[in-house]
Simulated assay, not measured.
Amino acid sequence: MTPSVVLVSGVSRFLGGHLAARLAANPGIDRVLGVDTVPPSRDMLRRMGRAEFVRADIRNPLIAKVVANANVDTVVHASLSASPGSSGGRTVMKEMNVIGTMQLLAACQKAPSVRRVVLKSSTAVYGSSPRDPALFDEATTPKDMPSGGYAKDTVEIEGYLRGFGRRRPDVSVTVLRFANFIGPRIETVLTRYFALPVVPTVLGYDARVQLLHEEDALAVLERATAEDLPGVFNVAADGVLLLSQAIRRAGRVPVPVPGLAVGPVSRLFRGAGLVDFSPEQMRFLNFGRVVDTTRLREGFGFEPRWTTMQAFDDFVRGRGLNPVVSPARVESLERCVLDMARCMRRESPERT
């Protein structure tokens, strides 16, 4: 059943704002409310069309009045932040993520009009560990539970949502565990990382990276909002890239960093305002993470348009990332190495 009044949190950010714009363009939806602590950009407000911006802090119990007065029937919680730097620090980020979610769910619990809740969650709930399985499905228990940061926030938030579902069994609850976003327009820690001219990696590791194109992410959120599709779903593109492959496709220069130096290097990049590395993000770059998306296709009915490789290449093209080292120079160096290897093979019999 198409919703009547939809509330979307986090509309000053890419996903929340563009989702509100898509929903506002749906004539079957009577009203769209976009909530955030700061207003979206002028361009985003223009894109949002008839969607109404409500300046409100979901950490404040007054959010219950917004939900009740508007007779909201569908809530899309899309404001979870993975970046302490852009959130005003780790303390503020945790308050917005965890306390904000608790207050929003409390508002939903009190409002009899609410019939559907959609959560933008993350595959970060599975953590990253050298003991991880090849694929995480929705029922897999992490080998090492996230101990802090955004990953721990997400685990707690999903727990609160399960509690809400038990208290309000009449409400349809959808949890979308998204892989890392990539694309020409979205700004994330990962897009900034791959845009660095010199990309630090962890010496001795080459993580498997699974991504999701920004447009596929919006399409999944829109479908979850417009249709009754309860459950937990991994949302990711087909295929994986090794971290080394991704860096090469972006034309960047990898710089392997010994494990003991990873902490100081990440603090250096964070202090310089280049990339806001957190410990769980560094673990992801160590070990990677790949999820099974069978339930997304069979239960949710969605097939991502872009594969991981196609999504990454679209990001590279869209950002206009020119190779730091030209392809011709790389090919020349490769030829030199191959020529040296052939010479060594020819000389080795003579030495024996």
Results as ranks from 00 to 15, higher is better:
Arg319Lys: 13
Ser332Lys: 11
Gly301Pro: 13
Gly301Glu: 11
Glu298Ala: 01
Phe315Gly: 00
Val325Pro: 12
Ser348Ala: 09
Met340Asn: 05
Arg329Gly: 06
Arg305Ile: 13
Arg319Asp: 00
Phe315Ile: 00
Glu298Phe: 01
Arg329Thr: 14
Gly320Gln: 10
Cys336Asp: 10
Gly299His: 04
Arg305Val: 15
Cys343Glu: 15
Pro327Asn: 08
Ser332Pro: 03
Ser332Phe: 12
Glu334Trp: 07
Arg317Val: 04
Trp306Glu: 15
Ala328Arg: 10
Val324Trp: 03
Gly299Leu: 07
Arg345Leu: 13
Phe300Leu: 04
Glu334Gln: 10
Glu298Tyr: 00
Arg345His: 14
Arg329Trp: 09
Cys343His: 08
Cys336Asn: 09
Gly301Arg: 11
Arg345Met: 11
Pro349Ala: 02
Cys343Asn: 13
Glu331Val: 15
Glu334His: 06
Thr307Asp: 08
Pro304His: 07
Pro349Asn: 05
Asn322Cys: 08
Ser326Tyr: 06
Gly318Gln: 12
Ser326Thr: 14
Leu338Gln: 13
Asp313Phe: 05
Cys336His: 04
Arg319Asn: 07
Val337Tyr: 07
Cys343Ile: 11
Ala328Leu: 14
Asn322Phe: 05
Pro304Phe: 00
Arg351Gly: 03
Asp313Tyr: 01
Pro323Glu: 01
Pro327Ile: 14
Arg346Tyr: 14
Ser348Asn: 10
Gln310Gly: 08
Val324Tyr: 02
Phe300Lys: 09
Arg319Glu: 05
Asp313Met: 15
Leu333Trp: 06
Arg329Asp: 03
